[in-house]
Amino acid sequence: MIEVTGIVALYVFMLAAVAGYEVITRVPVILHTPLMSGSNFIHGIVVVGAMVTLGVAETPVEQAIGFIAVLLGAANAVGGYVVTERMLEMFKSSKKEDG
């Protein structure tokens, strides 16, 4: 298994940045708010990092900070998902309504 560190991580970083840039250039203005919310949801992946951090925590202080980090990360992910989904749910096409 290849560890993602050093120069490999740098390549991953560069390609991910290009992907992020390319993905958004094709988004129409009407979806900007849901998109901001959707990308906000995606960085909720931080919860995974927080879980690993809490998992390796040893002292009570580390555990407390890790606990808060998981709590905040989970709120970021869940809240981001629910508001994005709520917004997108409302977008309807008139063609669909007629048909």
Binding site: A16, H43, V48
Partner: peptide, 22 residues
């Protein structure tokens, strides 16, 4: 990078780049 976790690197960086452009 700190945790050596590619999911965080990719998701975070994609959002970072997309967010900057937005």
């Amino acid at each position: 990078f700190l945790l050596g976790n590619p999911a965080l690197i990719i998701a975070g960086t994609v959002v970072g780049a997309a967010g900057m452009l937005l």
